[in-house]
Design a protein around this nucleic acid. Structure first.
Lengths: 127, 127
DNA sequence: TATAATAACAGTAACGATTATCGTTATTGT
DNA sequence: ACAATAACGATAATCGTTACTGTTATTATA
């Protein structure tokens, strides 16, 4: 079951990679509709699942829905407790966290997720 | 709108604190039904939201549902990618993460969530 | 370059965890 | 006691996501 090319998948990935706002599926859908008027939501969800499963993109659960990041390099995020948006935080990568924690653990550690919670710069000014 | 006592909330919290398996709302519900036969799911969800909002318990999104932890002391977790359960990981607390990351950030950082992904000890043996 | 196999699609129905509503009950301060 | 209201049980509604179905597009092979 190797992957076949599809114009839809390419445009979904292009759209996601060209923006830095970590959209939800719905926000992506609204934007993609302009260039792909009969894109199906099912197609979007299926491709977002494919792309995050194979590590091309990242998926974060924020509030009550998922947000996606086209930048899969190691970096960190803040979820704003006011607007529920997801932001990049600029900081040097923490190394060895997985191995540090794996030392005393009898299972396997594959990866970790470090997310900060707080108030984003925008909300911090306007509140 | 101060909080009034309720027997239901007390028993929900007692049940959650007496176990270490980080149950979902549904798993809690099944167990609580034995001592509170006409507990309503809505009541359970409402109280889990109250208790996690005020910091008494912790809430984690795992797979497609939330899991709860009655131990709100700083400690870390692993989500098993095989069984989707949530486990404690024994490790000394990382301090200063919030302040480290807040240095160059113009918003506010209140807290962080560090979750590891991998295979739990049980699944690691049986696969 | 036809053809066969099948991944992917659009459209739509279904699912399931969670939330909201509403009339009733229990707690709490006066 | 009593009044105010938080919390309850029951149930309907919400909404993000997934599954289904018949059709279309891609890709490897003849």
């Amino acid at each position: 079951m190797s992957m076949k090319y599809s114009r839809q998948r390419e445009m979904i990935l292009n759209n996601l990679c060209s923006r830095t706002d970590h959209p939800t599926a719905d926000e992506l859908y609204i934007d993609l509709k302009e260039s792909l008027p009969n894109l199906s939501l099912g197609t979007l969800y299926r491709n977002l699942a494919l792309l995050s499963d194979n590590g091309t993109i990242l998926k974060f659960h924020c509030g009550n829905s998922d947000r996606f990041d086209g930048n899969n390099n190691l970096h960190y995020h803040l979820i704003c407790e006011n607007c529920n948006r997801l932001y990049d935080i600029d900081h040097a990568p923490l190394t060895n966290l997985n191995t540090m924690f794996a030392e005393d653990y009898k299972g396997k550690i594959n990866s970790h997720l470090l997310v900060f919670y707080g108030i984003c710069e925008d909300c911090n000014c306007s509140v």
